[in-house]
Simulated scan of single mutants.
Amino acid sequence: MNKIYFDYNASTPLAPEVVDAMQPLLSDFYGNPSALHWAGKPVKKLLQNARIQVSELIGCSPREITFTSGGSEANNLALKGFYFKNQHKGKHIITSTIEHPAIVNPCKFLEKVGAKVTYIGVDQYGRVSPEEIEKAITNDTILITIMHSNNETGTLQPIKEIGEIAGRYGIAFHTDASQSVGKVPVNVDDLKVDMLTIAGHKLYAPKGIGSLFIRDGVKLEPLIHGAGHENGLRAGTENTLLAVGLGKACEIASTQLGDPKLKDLTDYFWSKLTSEFGEKVVLNGHPEDRLPNTLNVSFVRKIGQDLLDAIPHLAASTGSACHAGRIELSPVLKEMNVPGEVGMGAIRFSLGRYTTRDEIDTVMNCLIQIVR
C-alpha cells in the first residue's frame, strides 16, 4: 500500500515553496551576513526579509524575533535566559504538568540552581485553570510559562486570560507555540505574551530552525556567548539558509490560516470513527478548543502501539514523538486522569496540508479490520 503520513505534529514535510526559496542559498548566496562587502550584503537582506516574514505571522516587530536552532533552544533561551538575567527580582516560576520536555527539563535544571517551580495541574480536557495560576503567584514569581497548545491532544490553553493575569502582577509570560503557529491564528499582542516559541519543522520549514519572540524591554542572558549576533542573544554566524526557509513557511501559513480544510478533514475522520466504533473509541482532549488538525483518540481496551504496528504503511504516534516506543500511559493523559484501559489505546492522528479524504478512508478500512 502507499505510505500514509498522519504525524504532522511530530514533523512536517518541507513545502515545495520553501525548498525553492532556500535553493539559491545553496549556490549563489554564500557570503557571511555580517560582512559589509558584495557577498555579505545580499545575504543580510535575505536574513532580514525572513525575520520580517516571521514577525508578520505573529504580529510583532522584526527586531523582536531571534532565530534559534529550533523550539527546544528557544524554550531554553526563554526560561534560562530570563531566570539568569532576572533572578535578583525573584526565583519563582509557574508552569503546568503537561508541558513538553523542552519546558519541563529546563525547569528541572533551574530548580537545581535555586529556582522554585510550581507545576499546575490540568482538568479532564488537559486545560489549565487561570484561577489556579493566579493562586500560585507569590511576591517571588518572575515568570509564567504555559504551552499554547498541547502537542499530544491539541488542546488549546487559555493563554490570553493567563497573559492578562501575568500583566496585572507585572510577571513575564512565555508560551511555547510550536504546535500552534501556522495552524491557528497567533498574535502576541492578543495573547498578552512577552515571549513566544516557534519551531520551523512544525510548519513545513526545515528542522534545525526556530525563533523566539522577545518583547521589547524583556532582558535575557544569552545561552551562547561570542560575537553580537541576533541582538547579542545568540552568538554564531546566522543560518541564513534555514532562516529563509522558516520565513517562507511563515509567509505561506499567513495566507492559509482561514482555510477550513484541516478542520473539515479532522471532523470527517472523527465522524467515521464514532460511526464505526461508537463507545469503543474515546476522544482525548477538549472537544472544541483544540488544534484543527489533531485527533487524539483511544480505542478502549486496546494497545495503541499494537494497532499502529499492524498498519506499517501508516505513520502516526501513540503520543508525543519524543515518547515513541514506550508502551505506557502517556504522562499527559495520566495528568488528565484518563483511565489506563482507555489511555493505553491512545493514538494521535495529526493531519496536515497534504492529507486527503482517500487516505482517511484507507486508514479507516485498516482500523476496522484490526480493531475487530
Score class of each variant (00 low, 15 high):
Ile133Asp: 00
Ile98Trp: 02
Gly163Ala: 01
Ser129Gly: 11
Phe109Gln: 05
Ile142Arg: 02
Lys116Ser: 10
Ala166Thr: 10
Lys108Tyr: 12
Glu111Gln: 15
Lys108Cys: 13
Ile159Val: 08
His148Tyr: 07
Asn139Leu: 14
Met147Lys: 14
Tyr119Leu: 12
Ile165Pro: 00
Tyr169Ser: 00
Asp140Tyr: 11
Lys135Cys: 08
Leu156Ser: 13
Gly154Trp: 05
Glu99Ile: 08
Val122Tyr: 12
Ile133Met: 01
Ile103Gln: 12
Pro106Ile: 00
Ile120Trp: 15
Asn150Arg: 12
Ser96Ile: 05
Asn150Ala: 06
Met147Asp: 03
Gly126Arg: 07
Ala102Gln: 08
Ala166Met: 08
His92Glu: 08
Ile162Thr: 01
Val104Lys: 11
Gly90Pro: 10
Ile165Ala: 00
Pro130Cys: 01
Leu156Arg: 10
Val128Phe: 00
Gln157Tyr: 12
Gly121Tyr: 14
Thr138Ile: 13
Lys112Phe: 15
Lys116Thr: 01
His148Leu: 06
Gly126Cys: 13
Thr155Asn: 03
Lys135Asp: 05
His92Asn: 15
Pro101Arg: 04
Ser149Glu: 02
His174Gln: 08
Thr141Asn: 09
Ala102Asn: 12
Asp176His: 03
Gln157Phe: 09
Thr145Trp: 05
Val122Ser: 07
Met147Glu: 04
Lys91Leu: 11
Ile171Phe: 02
Thr145Asn: 02
Asp140Ala: 15
Pro158Gly: 13
Ile146Glu: 06
Gly167Asn: 07
Leu143Met: 12
Lys135Val: 00
Phe173Trp: 06
Tyr119Pro: 06
Gly154Gln: 05
Glu111His: 09
Glu132Ala: 06
Val113Ala: 01
Thr138Leu: 14
Pro106Arg: 03
Ile98Gly: 04
